[in-house]
Design a protein around this nucleic acid. Structure first.
Lengths: 117, 117
DNA sequence: GAGCTTGTCAACCATCTGGTTGAGCACCGA
DNA sequence: TCGGTGCTCAACCAGATGGTTGACAAGCTC
């Protein structure tokens, strides 16, 4: 079983599943309601929902024979945190690089290749 | 060819590729340097980098026979925007639901099923 | 030029994925 | 209890994916 972050990214890599998430953000829905707009079989949509469920993006309740699907927004934080961490890191590095370049222009010194980056 | 958002999510669904991104956030690196920590072949890492490249997460330069790999942080925004959009939407809905529940408690009226959600 | 270094391309293989159809379970309504 | 509704499970199939190895291009260095 892969880690949750991988599962979340993989789940959202599919446009149909992203669309499902988009619609579930508006409100809970049954499998049949969710499947209606697509020309694929109900079973295919059910599979997509299972992927979203094991990724933790969605939970399924019970209402007689219906299985209302509910979006779990908290999992998004997992991704956001991962993304933000490396985006900020990269941006800080750019800032440092800019500073280095500016310093180089100021002094017109030899680059020296002293840094790892 | 799938849309870029799908490609970005798919690219980051692999732990090795997320690790590569994490290391590239620290600084540019050559393919050999990036491949060193893993026990897979250099070709496998080269393939991973190609996936990251076609997703727009990474660019490759030239330095003699070396191909320094560079992280492109802007693409992260694409994901962040998508995520934030639906997270906020879902959270607003929760807030509205809370309000409805609170109102129901106040009045003790019949639910009436008047809303879609 | 010969040979090492760095990396890509191509072919192949096992596994995963998204789709299908068919069967069947759970539940409601008559 | 009989049938219809809502959905899942299982088996199967085509194509994508991640890994391998082998060949080779590009570029320094001797």
């Amino acid at each position: 079983m892969p880690d949750q972050l991988s599962q979340v990214f993989a789940a959202l890599a599919d446009p149909t599943r992203r669309d499902l998430v988009a619609r579930l953000a508006v409100g809970d829905a049954t499998v049949g309601q969710l499947a209606a707009p697509y020309d694929v079989s109900l079973q295919a949509v059910s599979k997509h929902l299972k992927v979203l469920e094991t990724a933790g993006l969605v939970t399924r309740g019970r209402d007689a024979q219906r299985r209302p699907v509910h979006l779990e927004a908290e999992v998004f934080d997992l991704m956001t945190k991962w993304i933000e961490r490396y985006r900020q890191q990269a941006e800080e590095r750019f800032a440092r690089l800019d500073a280095v370049l500016a310093a180089m222009n100021d002094t017109s010194a030899t680059p020296e290749e002293g840094q790892t980056a």
